[in-house]
Deep mutational scan, measured.
Amino acid sequence: MAAAAAAGAGPEMVRGQVFDVGPRYTNLSYIGEGAYGMVCSAYDNVNKVRVAIKKISPFEHQTYCQRTLREIKILLRFRHENIIGINDIIRAPTIEQMKDVYIVQDLMETDLYKLLKTQHLSNDHICYFLYQILRGLKYIHSANVLHRDLKPSNLLLNTTCDLKICDFGLARVADPDHDHTGFLTEYVATRWYRAPEIMLNSKGYTKSIDIWSVGCILAEMLSNRPIFPGKHYLDQLNHILGILGSPSQEDLNCIINLKARNYLLSLPHKNKVPWNRLFPNADSKALDLLDKMLTFNPHKRIEVEQALAHPYLEQYYDPSDEPIAEAPFKFDMELDDLPKEKLKELIFEETARFQPGYRS
């Protein structure tokens, strides 16, 4: 834990890192770190609560700039109880001085990944967590956004079992017609939660990839272990087919990539493993919904509104309290091709509203 900075004593240090967030945020305490930044909790002297502050230093890398800009653009436009918001952003007053960006968010005690390492969940908890994931996802999908990296560590939890989806750095506007060349190379989302079509096709992607990830998360809540822990690309596919069985001819016809289709045709026939054999203690309604989410063919996979209306979630289902976005989200430009200098300018502009004396 960093010592509390005395008023006016300059930035606090946390594990050798400068955290320049005073005077409003003090009493910093280390939480963890990701690929390009550290997260601390801090005391907000204005709202009198502890908050989470993520320090991001992305400006050396085009990919990190892209992810940072995506996350900020999306989260500043989203407003939903099951999606983490941005409360404040701290950065230098000029673009030349801006080396880091500090993002202030609600402090959540833990995440689903940490929880599943230590606790076996009751059916009631599984049901409530799944409902909140789908409630947040309904809003995301209504904005025409794909999260693309749903996994237990991106689901934040607090002691009252509130759940918030975080990390929109890989999110995209849904565009089933656009052929994202190089899709697989830039697709760094965790393999275990990846839909089979991501490994088999490169053309376009749809909201059904997020539903697949939610199915993987439900299976993990039922058993405290990942359902498809593939060691590499082909191993991942083999794990999936080992449980779902061989795809039907109709399902194979959806695979545009001939090499991928021929690979699947070359494999020995596998039978589907019954879900109640894998999860003998699970609620039968939970397994019915799991089956509809972990469907090989993305066109037959359940959609988020149908999933919310499934009998497993009937005690929570309330369409009048499951809000959607006001308007579909649009990125003005494809960020993939922009140089990091341009992305830095866009991050600077996007964060201006939090600067003292800002006038829109």
Score class of each variant (00 low, 15 high):
A2K: 00
A4S: 13
A6F: 00
A6H: 05
A6D: 11
A6L: 14
E12F: 00
V14T: 02
V14K: 07
V14I: 13
G16M: 04
R24K: 07
Y25L: 12
Y25M: 08
N27F: 05
L28I: 09
G32D: 12
E33F: 01
G34P: 08
Y36T: 07
G37N: 11
V39M: 09
V39D: 02
S41D: 02
N45A: 04
K48N: 15
I53E: 05
I53N: 14
I53Q: 03
K54Y: 01
K55D: 08
F59N: 02
H61M: 01
Q62R: 05
Q62E: 08
Q62H: 15
C65N: 02
Q66L: 15
Q66N: 00
L69Q: 14
L69G: 03
L69R: 01
I74P: 06
L76V: 00
R79T: 04
I86K: 05
A92Y: 00
P93N: 05
I95N: 15
M98Q: 01
M98Y: 10
Y102E: 08
V104Y: 04
Q105M: 04
L107K: 04
D111Q: 04
L116E: 10
H120D: 05
H120K: 11
L121D: 11
S122E: 08
D124L: 06
D124I: 04
I126D: 08
I126W: 09
F129A: 06
F129E: 09
Y131H: 04
Y131R: 04
R135Q: 03
G136T: 01
K138N: 15
Y139C: 13
Y139P: 08
N144Y: 15
L150W: 05
P152H: 15
S153G: 02
N154M: 11
L155P: 05
L156A: 09
L157A: 12
L157H: 07
A171G: 06
V173I: 08
V173N: 07
A174E: 13
D175K: 10
D177T: 04
H178D: 10
H180D: 10
Y187Q: 05
Y187K: 04
V188T: 02
R194Q: 12
E197W: 07
E197C: 08
M199R: 03
L200F: 08
N201A: 07
S202T: 13
S202G: 10
T206C: 14
T206R: 11
S208D: 05
I209D: 09
I209Y: 11
D210H: 04
V214Q: 11
C216K: 10
L218M: 15
A219N: 08
E220G: 09
L222A: 11
P229R: 07
P229A: 04
P229V: 06
G230Q: 00
K231P: 01
H232T: 01
D235V: 14
L237R: 04
L237Q: 14
H239R: 00
I240H: 04
I240C: 06
I243V: 06
P247G: 00
S248R: 09
S248T: 14
I255R: 10
I255D: 07
I255A: 07
I255T: 04
L258I: 08
L264W: 01
H269L: 15
K270A: 04
K270M: 14
N276H: 06
R277V: 06
P280K: 12
A282E: 03
S284C: 11
K285T: 09
K285C: 10
A286R: 02
A286T: 13
L287D: 06
L289E: 04
L290P: 14
L294Q: 14
L294G: 05
F296W: 03
N297V: 10
P298T: 15
P298M: 06
H299T: 13
H299E: 13
H299P: 07
I302K: 04
E305P: 01
H310F: 01
L313P: 06
E314D: 13
D321F: 05
P323Q: 03
A327T: 08
F329D: 04
F329M: 09
K330W: 00
D332Y: 15
D336Q: 05
D337F: 01
P339A: 09
P339Y: 10
E341Q: 04
K342P: 02
L343Y: 10
E345I: 00
I347K: 13
E349M: 02
E350C: 00
E350G: 01
A352P: 02
Q355M: 12
S360T: 11
S360D: 12
S360V: 12
